[in-house]
Each structure stands twice: as C-alpha cells, then as structure tokens.
C-alpha cells in the first residue's frame, strides 16, 4: 500500500488540473485584495490581511472549490484510462481495492492541499493590509467581517485555519463522489461533469421541507458553522464520503478492463 500511495501522490503533482487549480487559487485572492470597486459593490473596506481569506472562501465554496476538487479527483483515475496504464498496473500483484484505495486517499487529501495553498496565497495577497490586530472580524467568526471589537492576530489566524480546515473536510465527499462517478463512466470528463451536475441538482432539493440538513451541499457551509453544530455536519460528511468511496471500490472490483 505504501508503494501505491507514494505513486499516487507523485502523480498528483503532474496532473494538469492540479497545476491549473493551484494557479487559480493563487491568483484568485488577488482579485479581492486589489479590487478597486469593492466598497461600491459590497459596501465594506478590507482592513486586515486576515479578511482576504474569508472573502476568497465565501466566494468560491459554492462552485469553484467543488469544481476543482471534482476535476482533480476524476483526473486521478481518468489519466490512467487515457494513458492506458490502468491495465498495466492491475497486471502486477496489486489488488483492485488497494489500488483504488490509494487513489481515494490521494483524492481525499487533495482538498486539504488545495485549501492550504489557498489560505497561504490569500494571506500573502492581503499582506498590504497588515497582519496586526484590527477592529472587525475575519468573516469566518462571529459577526462576519464587522466583528465584535478588536481581534488579535492569533485569534484571527485561528478562525481562518479552522474555517479552511472545515471547508477541506466538506470537500472530501465531493472528491469521493467524483472518483465513484469516474469509475462508473470510465472517463474523467464524464465523472467530473456528473459530480457537478449531482451537486447542482442536490442544491435544488432545498425546496423539499426537512431535506436541507441532510444534503451534501448544505454541509459545504460547515466552515462557518458554530462549533456546537459541527458534530452533525461532520457525521454526515463522513457518511457521504464512506458511501461514495465504498460504492467506487465495489463498482471498480466488477469492471472489465
């Protein structure tokens, strides 16, 4: 398993979607940090570097980050199909569940890598506003960007790390879903597209009363949830992740190559 995991993480850096995705996440915060008309459009000023990451996360969690997660997770398997290397590897004494498990682990870890890069890039982009204490909020704590008074640098950074970590956790089931659908379609584009379609359709399910707390798309907001509400969100995220991963393994076990 160690060899397979090393292989998958080495491959991860070579995926075009990873390189493109990380580049987008490095550039994206600059739009917020240097947006000239931010007050005219949104009615606030950025006063601290610690506010830029929240703006980035708030504006990307509904679509951009799920998109980048789904594409990379799908490409992790899709690139093997394109290169024809899938049978090559499976002809070695490697079991199918082990091989796919290594891919699922890489796909699950990727949102954490992505969010770590995004957070670092956002802080660097906001450096012009300073890293000291400030009056206001990070956008990920109580009272949003307005805050409740003076916020210290440590507390601000703590809020951001917590929010970004929870956002990465919420993206894991999307990565699992993308791997599962790529196994189903045996095509990276098909897998990523089906994942996004499923998320969009799921968002529409909020029209059914009582369904909203159970939706995967609802859990994407976990990063801003109060700690007391996190148990439910984490449990659902874990359940969705386990179900999609198990479905991917079961289906992969039965595929003809």
């Amino acid at each position: 398993m160690g060899v397979l995991l090393r292989m998958e993480f080495a491959k991860l850096w070579r995926l075009s979607s990873v390189r493109f995705g990380l580049l987008v996440l490095v550039v994206f915060p600059l739009l917020w940090a240097y947006a000239p008309g931010i007050f005219d459009v949104y009615g606030f000023f950025i006063v601290s570097a610690y506010q830029v990451p929240a703006l980035g996360l708030l504006s990307s969690m509904q679509f951009l980050l799920p998109l980048l997660t789904a594409i990379t997770a799908a490409e992790l398997l899709g690139v093997e199909i394109t290169n024809g290397t899938l049978p090559t590897v499976l002809l070695r004494p490697v079991t199918r569940p082990n091989w796919l498990a290594a891919k699922l682990v890489a796909a699950a870890v990727y949102p954490f890598i992505m969010l770590a890069v995004f957070l670092a890039a956002s802080l660097v982009a906001g450096a012009q506003f300073g890293f000291g204490q400030f009056i206001g909020g990070t956008g990920l704590g109580d009272a949003g960007l307005l805050g409740t008074g003076v916020l210290g640098a440590g507390a601000a950074l703590g809020e951001l790390v917590r929010g970004y970590f929870l956002a990465a956790v919420a993206l894991v089931p999307i990565a699992m879903l993308a791997v599962f659908l790529t196994v189903a379609f045996m095509n990276a584009a098909g897998g990523a597209l089906a994942t996004l379609s499923a998320l969009i359709v799921m968002q529409l399910f909020i029209v059914f009363p009582g369904l909203e707390p159970f939706l995967l798309t609802t859990q994407l907001q976990a990063y801003s949830a109060p700690t007391a509400d996190l148990t439910w969100a984490i449990a659902l995220i874990a359940l969705y992740s386990a179900l999609f991963a198990a479905a991917a393994v079961v289906l992969f076990e039965r595929k003809d190559f």
């Binding site: 491959k11 070579r14 290169n83 024809g84 290397t85 049978p87 090559t88 002809l91 070695r92 004494p93 490697v94 079991t95």
Partner: peptide
C-alpha cells in the same frame, strides 16, 4: 488469487502503456 500475477508478465496494450512523463 491476484498474487499469481507475481509469476506473470504481460503486455495487454498495443502500444505498451507507460507513464509518458
């Protein structure tokens, strides 16, 4: 018994498939 593949060498793609990078 996938372990039997330790005793097997095979090329099932034409041309043989490798990681191009």
């Amino acid at each position: 018994r996938p372990a039997v593949r330790r005793r097997l060498g095979a090329v099932v793609e034409a041309p043989a498939a490798f990681y191009p990078y």
